[in-house]
Simulated assay, not measured.
Amino acid sequence: MLRTIDSPQFSLFKDCIARRLLSYPDLQNPPQESQELDDFTSYLTQEVWPTLPAAFLTASYETRCDLPEDLDSMLLHSVSGAFVDTLISYGIAEDAEGAETFLRKTLADYRQQACAPPPVWSSTRGKDCEICEREIPLTYHHLIPRSTHAKALKKKWHPESMLNVVAWLCRPCHTMVHSVATNEDLAQNYYSVALLLEREDVQRWGRYASKQRYGVRRG
């Protein structure tokens, strides 16, 4: 199995390590800047990530049953020596057993977050349109259009839990999104606001729309 370091799971695990590091008040020579913390946590994560059981590398709500429930009894014999030595040298752990305890607690945090159920999408609503950033009445745009749900599941484009993810857009931006791509193209290639905003035409529209006053009659 490819033990990739550019997956969402890797990034989430790295964040869990960072939060646990910051919870140690007696950390020796702690990273002083955000970049130092990022470099330090990246190093630790890259050391330990390839040694984790395969189920952790693809952990998600759909695969939650594949992860062990009892982390205390999970074997961690292949943990990187560099990972252990680093935790000891920074005063995070006193010995190898302490380093394993740190790792098990981090894995517990990671499992809880990686396997959390998807949000109720209506609760994600903000005040501003996610494209033009104007505070005006919003509509919800199915990032994976409903007409493509059956095909998305059959072709395994997305897990079922993500089918109803939405973006909150004003009506003009909502209409624009559906004018630049077909529903199938949206489902396959533009299933997040970040992906939509990578399109130059969407960026141009967003800049234009952001300068328009809502409710002004024209003509």
Rank of each mutant, 00 (worst) to 15 (best):
A194F: 12
V202A: 02
R146K: 13
T106V: 04
V180Q: 08
D15S: 15
Y110L: 05
H142P: 01
G126S: 03
D128Y: 08
Q46Y: 09
E33C: 14
F13K: 01
F102P: 04
Q9S: 07
E62S: 13
D70G: 11
V202C: 01
S23Y: 02
H158N: 04
S122T: 15
S73G: 13
A116H: 07
W205I: 05
A167Y: 00
Y61F: 12
I144W: 00
L67V: 05
H142T: 01
Q35S: 13
D85M: 11
P25S: 04
F83D: 03
Q32C: 08
S147F: 06
Y140V: 10
F13I: 05
S122A: 12
L76F: 13
P117T: 00
L103A: 02
S192T: 15
N183S: 09
R199N: 04
V177P: 02
R204T: 11
F102Q: 03
A54T: 08
Q188K: 14
T86P: 02
T106E: 00
R111H: 04
R207P: 08
Q28R: 13
V84K: 04
P25E: 04
W49S: 02
T4I: 07
S78V: 10
Y24K: 12
P25Q: 05
V202Q: 03
A55Y: 05
M162H: 10
L186S: 00
E184K: 03
S123D: 14
G98L: 00
D201A: 10
Y90C: 06
D109Q: 12
W157P: 06
E184A: 07
T51V: 08
C115G: 05
L75Q: 11
T63Y: 07
Q112H: 12
M1P: 03
L163H: 01
L169T: 01
L163V: 05
N189E: 10
L71T: 01
N164R: 09
D95M: 01
L71S: 02
L138R: 02
M176C: 08
V177F: 03
R171Q: 15
G126I: 00
Y61D: 08
K127L: 13
S179M: 10
L153P: 00
R64F: 06
